[in-house]
Design a protein around this nucleic acid. Sequence first.
DNA 1: ACTGCTTGATGGAACGTTCCATGATTGTCG
DNA 2: CGACAATCATGGAACGTTCCATCAAGCAGT
Lengths: 339, 339
Amino acid sequence: MSAPKSGRPTIIDVAAAAGVSKSLVSLVMRGAKNVSLEKRELVLASAAALGYRPNAVARTLVQRRSHLIGVLLSDLHNPFFAEVIDGLQAEAGERGYSTIMSVVDQRENAERRALDTLLELRIDGLILASPMIETGGITSSSKEVPVVLVARHARIASVDSVANDDPRGASLIVQHLAELGHRRIAHIDGGNAAGAAERRRGYERSMQKRELTEFVQIVPGAYSDEGGRQGIAVLFDSPTPPTAVFVANDLAALGALSALAERGLRVPEDVSVVGYDNTSLAAVSQIHLTTVDQPRPDMGRTAVRLLLERLTGKRESASHVLIPPRLVVRGTTAPPKQS
Amino acid sequence: MSAPKSGRPTIIDVAAAAGVSKSLVSLVMRGAKNVSLEKRELVLASAAALGYRPNAVARTLVQRRSHLIGVLLSDLHNPFFAEVIDGLQAEAGERGYSTIMSVVDQRENAERRALDTLLELRIDGLILASPMIETGGITSSSKEVPVVLVARHARIASVDSVANDDPRGASLIVQHLAELGHRRIAHIDGGNAAGAAERRRGYERSMQKRELTEFVQIVPGAYSDEGGRQGIAVLFDSPTPPTAVFVANDLAALGALSALAERGLRVPEDVSVVGYDNTSLAAVSQIHLTTVDQPRPDMGRTAVRLLLERLTGKRESASHVLIPPRLVVRGTTAPPKQS
DNA sequence: ACTGCTTGATGGAACGTTCCATGATTGTCG
DNA sequence: CGACAATCATGGAACGTTCCATCAAGCAGT
């Protein structure tokens, strides 16, 4: 009630203004119910008048929990993660948690530093949407807070994970193409990028199950424009080119489409092409690529759910969730040409 | 030295283990120089042995500053922001700040809530990469912490901003096309989306300056596939179609390309097309769109720099920075057909 | 009228740091 | 040799909350 005081008003200033104890102000701010209506309104009025804002830092210190979930993101450019984050953020919000994200760039130690920052802020849990981080860092973090890995299969027992069922996605593609009448279905793979091995394996097994083993043809590629181009070069310089190509991901599929166009081959009339990931690129009308969609928001939501199960002590053992993918048929697939 | 104590080790535990005062441990952890080598190593050894990690929450409370920059992001899907964030994060890191991001989704009050969370965490400054937030929210936040607006022109005196020089970008496009020999240069605009008015104005003025006023032709569109398609329909149903089209942004330019292809018009042989934004789409080899690039990482870096100028009290008045764009010539522009 | 219960309100300790004033030990210089 | 710095180390207050034990007042039951 004397000097205007510098800095932001605290609970104590509000208490003084309202003529009550700081404890009571605390109770009101937290919405406790054992407070008389009269005092509650008095306190709220004083708080509003002073422009009081609760200090989450002080609260975190005394409660020893922040209600904050840390998210480490390796790459914002990959539109894949944007939707994972959407789901993640929505689920966290509904459960009373906020998320704070740290994006990691390519520089040395950036991941380590970002991780330290998050852990020093005393986040309650950590979600890693980062394929690059080394296993050592993950396990050591998981000693301090629960950790969930997204979009990457984990071998680590102390850590939960949510990933796409890549073999299943590959099998959906083979099924679609086979049902259209294709038999010469080739695969341009993604090298050793995340999920590439699983997609390759899924393709192979699915071909075998359909007794198309003799038509299995895998050529090396990469998750890039160039990777797709090279794959097409190899496949269509051979004496027995395929009638359909399953390319490891959408970006590579675009490269494949370009390379086919340059060879004068029409899609889908001459060759069918399928990608993987259902990136925004695939939906563009000029491209209109048949591909496989992963329910990305679901993956984010599931990650939060797994984390909270650990936080509330509902589960002790690691849980590894596989999310089923979905085929999205667009304009790059059709029955094979009658020859 | 007695019971193992539950919870994480604190500075006091380290002090006890090393047989020194907590103040000394604090000095060592902060890298102060008035500490003997002997004690420094002793403290570091104990800290490592206990697995001590500094608690940023306690530090923030006593220092009354968090060294945290809050970033509010309206839309992760727009690849535009991904690179802004890259620059932002890099610059902040170099200046000893960490960033925490909150992504806002479409739900009611989401922005308000995200903003509150950030402010309650006592961030030192706020960067808004969010075209949707209402002006009222911005000004009231700017009373608590310095605020910088990215990629949106501000009329607010208390807030700094960094934006692209859209009129300049538009003029680069007109210049490029004019130098190729085009005179009938049309513009498909972006309605009232961010920057659209500036691009339209830039186009118009630049045409006038080159004495091409009689060829100015603006048709309504939108920042979308469909917007571009509609623009093409209007332009090429007219008796005097243009030889070149400047489309308001890349996505709309894609729609325009599709629509032109459907009409049997070749790009760039029959018509030249230019987009704006240099999104990853534009670089894809199948599209290879001539467009205008905004130095997005620079915009992020500049935003942080503006913020820190305010934080350190180096500047009091608002600063509004315009970043110059750059023309990226690819395969969708060529000299007009001789007719 | 006394006990015990409920409701509403309170003061003080605690959370894990940093900062400040001060203390102890040594070295330097006239 | 005494005074005075310089160097290294320390204890306690403060930061803004929450939590806990406690208390005052009112009320019901016997």
